[in-house]
Design a protein around this nucleic acid. Structure first.
Length: 188
DNA sequence: AACTGGATCGTCT
DNA sequence: GACGATCCAGTTG
């Protein structure tokens, strides 16, 4: 079980360390294969302009869930690290509670059950009620990786500001990513 | 395979 | 009052 000390480190270390860990929520979930890091120096981060009612959990103690609603429709799950920083959980390889997740996702292919932050939250049934919950107690279970994985790094997805910052971490060759890792482009 | 627009609303300017 | 750390269905090539 990952406890608070795991998250009380620089956010890039935590983000990289989360690839391969197991995330369960009420018994459903799987292996984390894609994350992104955000911190208060980063114009793309919710914490960039300081604390607000929405982002207050990002400025609280490490090891809690920061959940927000986006585009009026979807929810996104983050793990809070040091104050002002958090890791967005973007994709899981589904392992446990497959039937429960399929039911919540309306019968999409298994490879797309959790292949994006909004999909993942929907598959697990996470919403604003869970904003601020600690990660080392039920309904959350976060278990350390049992193997070393090949990690890929690239630019984050779906943002306009800070789009060139390579703070996206993926499990290389995973079939469950929101988007494949782009090969690095040669200079012109 | 790549791109487009629509859904929908809390949050901050 | 505009916009977004998204997803999906539809169209186009």
């Amino acid at each position: 079980m990952l406890t608070r000390s795991f998250f009380d480190r620089p956010v890039l270390e935590v983000a990289r360390g989360l690839i391969g860990t197991t995330l369960l929520f009420e018994g459903a979930g799987g292996q984390i294969v894609e994350v992104e890091a955000y911190d208060e120096t980063d114009p793309a981060s919710h914490s960039f302009r300081g604390p607000t009612p929405r982002n207050r959990v990002m400025f609280g103690p490490p090891g809690h869930a920061y959940v927000y609603k986006i585009y009026g429709i979807h929810y996104c799950l983050n793990f809070v690290c040091r104050p002002g920083s958090a890791v967005l959980i973007r994709a899981l390889e589904p392992v446990e509670g497959l039937e429960a997740m399929r039911a919540k996702r309306g019968g999409v292919a298994d490879r797309n059950l959790c292949s994006g932050p909004g999909k993942l939250a929907q598959a697990l049934g996470i919403d604003l009620r869970h904003d601020g919950l600690v990660l080392d107690q039920p309904p959350f279970v976060v278990q350390a990786a049992d193997e070393v994985h090949d990690i890929g790094i690239g630019p984050r997805i779906g943002i306009t500001k800070g789009a060139d910052t390579p703070w996206r971490f993926v499990k290389r060759n995973s079939l469950f990513l929101s988007k494949p890792l782009q090969p690095t482009q040669p200079d012109l």
